[in-house]
Nucleic acid binder design. Sequence first.
DNA 1: ACGCGAACCTGTGGGC
DNA 2: TGCCCACAGGTTCGCG
Length: 283
Amino acid sequence: MPELPEVETVRRGLAPVMEGARIAKADVNRPNLRWPFPDRMSERLTGAKIERLRRRSKYILADLNTGESLLIHLGMSGRMLISGAKLGQFVHDHPAPEKHDHVVFHMENGARVTFNDPRRFGAMDLLETKTADSHKLLSSIGPEPLGNSFDEAYLIDALATKGSPIKSALLDQSIVAGLGNIYVCETLYRARISPTRKANKISKPRVASLVPIIRQVLSDAIAAGGSSLKDFRQADGDLGYFQHSFDVYGREGERCRTDGCDNTIKRIVQSGRSSFYCPTCQR
DNA sequence: ACGCGAACCTGTGGGC
DNA sequence: TGCCCACAGGTTCGCG
């Protein structure tokens, strides 16, 4: 489900009820997600005030007033749903507990935030805020695509030695943070680059062209509240709308949207993931 | 060292 | 209706 735009959408949704708020109690309903939860997780969260909710790549980090930060990853199917809080003009009642409600944050302000993750590819951990960047899960992540350190010179350099297909290279979180299968497909379509082309065989100007396209695709998706495929919901339960803007993702067999192109969108499998592209427009 | 496939899980949808 | 297979937005691990 969640790539950078969806995670950012969730973060923005959670901020009004979690930032500056205290955790009255945290229910931890099972021993692990993808990995075991940290020792005494519930106790370490109970009574803590969340100073700030931030995002690094596809991770949400809640900086606590205890010197620790809670790290959250939504995996493929993770959701964070707010209830019991006044959101706009509506008050969302607490829903009945559902299967896969693995962690529930009861906030002192009356809001409840439920982490639900059927596939359990998600993760949570507690780490020292000061040294968060050196955490095992964060230390090898590349630059934020919407930040200043991600630019044309960087990407040209980073791809120069990559013999793998550009599709795989852009999915590699150590090259650029936060892109996933959908947004890589959309990026390569807009850039007119074939997903099968070897990263180090793409001309510098074409690699450079990827930078503003990546920024635009992600910004557009954030502005639309992310994409709702299958089960993605914003923290207030609303849908995202960017899926209506997909040019190629999930459009196998449909007509290419480029003016004057008669071809149809093809689906191929690259390192186990579907790639959607137009063989005529993307070279 | 690098790149790829397998593995981790559950749910859903399509074909028969 | 039911069964089986394919597939799903991510990431780590192990092997060649």
